[in-house]
Design a protein around this nucleic acid. Structure first.
Lengths: 353, 353
DNA sequence: CACTTTCGTGGATACGTTTTCAAGCATCTC
DNA sequence: GAGATGCTTGAAAACGTATCCACGAAAGTG
């Protein structure tokens, strides 16, 4: 069998031209119509496909783009990844995907792997500190964060509010990106979403609203604190570590330690799922005993009993836009993009009992 | 800034040895303890990372593994992908992921892209014909199918029952894999799962059981036909095309055209979701008016009203095993692996009304 | 001590491509 | 018609690595 593929040399020889000419023809360079036609014909006949290996080595970079998400099992990241893949496919670029498990250590390991592969474009839902991304940006990678920003590095004491703030479009950044704080990001408008949800619950009469968060929900909890106002009841703010078990434990613990709460804002879909499960287990009725708003709309929210009131975020668009940003990074370098959220009222919220 | 990374030459020069020695030390070849130590020290100090580009070009293959799934938004494929990524990460291998959208054309395009990248190991949930995979196996790729087998090619008229049959472990295959029908696969035991579900519904008194399928559910519908016995009511077997809209339309159409059915077997989680939605829209009560079994267990099945009775399949394990197969493909070449399914009885099935 | 074997080592080559460079040739300008 | 200009073209270099091969030294054997 023809075990090995045809190389550019084979094409050149068969067409009676030099390899340079073949390369030019296939890369859209200039060539006389006559030779161009012949080269194209020979290439088609030999079923020649240029090897990405040779090309990448020559231009010292892998064309592809890297994608690091915490967990593909989470519908949010599945949709985000689908958006990235859609954009990358239309550009013909391969995507190398890694799943970090929300573990900074694994994240660092995967960054190293991508570096080794010379992947020079990276879309990441960060888990680790801001300085975990130092190696990546220092190596010249074009990095775009999606859905989250990395938490402030322990030692790094720059503008403390910078990463918590919403980022706004602005066309021109003066210096090349060298610090993690400078990398562009595509985010949902968490602050507006959370504020809307809190106001909605307030309007229903709720005063003791709990926040159920997970890893990477820093901006959301900050928005929550801002929305509820100055004296935040810290017992109503709990965090899980990312696994479904941990989410369930956190939700269950919250309901048991604070039977006085009347509403819960779950900061992600697995937390919302856990909250429903825990409430059911403790014989709390939704929405009679406790109201529930979930951040992130998922298909099953409508199937749930009762249907869940949610803050929808355009997860797929986030991925798509991030991919666009990372691909057309040559021209301008926008600081970031913020996509709108939407409160979808279903049946999981009621007036304070 | 140090824009470019250190190469093997830099290490060799700094350590006062030849590049061959550095390569050997880092690849685990033989070297004197003295030089080994020095090379290692210098490499660490220079933060040297061997470039996958150079290595891959030299040995004419990309280390990584390719993964082709229809849709990462579908929880099943998200879990499968997570399994693949887990196994690949432990082996230090990058994974290039593509989403085919269940479209043979896009699938072929993505196969071409992987070929161009010289990815020589591929895990695929196939959408297209068996002969769509000819180019891949002919190019020497190690291919493993997961969750499904490709449908029989129109022209290819080999043993017709071969792909529909369950595949059994067998240690040694005589010839190298050259035909798509010969590539190993990791599957759930669809036949047993479907049979169990049908028997369960039969035991509840149901006689008119409908099958709601989607793309790639050939083996499941075959198992369904086998389980219900000879005279299959074809009006009770409907197919959707993969999108959520199409699934909903199929489910709704089924309920409306055949009000006499008493039970539905949905062949995938998005079909199950659509069935619940359509039933609710038509004021059919589950399980009073219609019983429902869904193939594939998902976290929200428990949250649904009523909780869904499902056939669970180990999606994550399927991915993990497939990755194992594709990585340790050097030694034996098993024809395939079949993983068990489990009927989980919740609340969506009742006696025939 | 002469010989063979083993081991550690470094130079050179090849992998497939893109890109630079200079040369060849035809056309245009004065 | 001589020089300048433009276009097309192929040889060669480079990218970073793994591996073949030869060479020298050390160790083992008679």
């Amino acid at each position: 069998m023809d075990a090995k593929r045809a190389t550019i040399k084979d094409v050149a020889k068969a067409a009676g031209v030099g390899v340079a000419t073949v390369s030019r023809v296939l890369s859209g360079g200039s060539a006389s119509p006559r030779t161009r036609e012949r080269v194209l014909a020979v290439a088609a006949q030999l079923d020649y496909r240029p090897s990405a290996l040779g090309r990448n080595l020559r231009q010292r970079r892998t064309g592809g783009i890297g994608l690091l998400v915490p967990d593909l099992t989470d519908s949010l990241f599945g949709r985000l990844a689908e958006g990235v893949l859609a954009c990358a496919r239309s550009a013909g670029e391969p995507v190398v995907v890694g799943s970090t498990g929300d573990d900074p250590e694994q994240e660092a390991e995967l960054i190293g792997m991508l570096l080794e592969q010379s992947v020079d474009r990276l879309i990441a839902v960060p888990s680790g500190d801001a300085d975990a991304w130092g190696p990546a940006v220092k190596a010249g990678m074009t990095v775009v964060f999606a859905d989250r920003l990395p938490s402030e590095a322990p030692g790094d004491d720059g503008d403390p509010g910078a990463t918590a703030d919403l980022m706004l479009l602005d066309g021109l950044a003066p210096a090349p990106v060298t610090r993690a704080a400078d990398v562009p990001a595509v985010l949902a408008d968490d602050r507006a979403g959370i504020r809307t949800a809190v106001r909605y619950l307030r309007g229903l009469g709720h005063r003791r609203i709990a926040f159920l968060g997970g890893p990477g929900h820093d901006r959301r909890v900050a928005a929550f604190r801002e929305a509820v106002g100055a004296p935040v009841d810290e017992g109503l703010v709990v965090f899980a570590t990312g696994s479904r078990d941990s989410a369930y434990a956190a939700a269950s613990g919250l309901f048991q330690s604070r039977p006085d709460l009347t509403a819960v804002l779950a900061a992600g879909n697995v937390l919302g799922e856990a909250a429903v499960l825990a409430a059911r287990e403790l014989d709390l009725r939704v929405p009679r005993d406790v109201s529930l708003v979930m951040y992130d709309d998922v298909p099953w929210a409508e199937l749930c009993a009762p249907p869940l009131t949610v803050i929808a975020q355009p997860a797929r668009d986030i991925g798509y836009r991030a991919a666009e940003l990372v691909l057309r990074s040559g021209s301008r370098r926008p600081r970031g993009v913020v996509l709108p959220t939407e409160l979808i009222v279903r049946g999981s919220c009621g007036p304070r009992r």
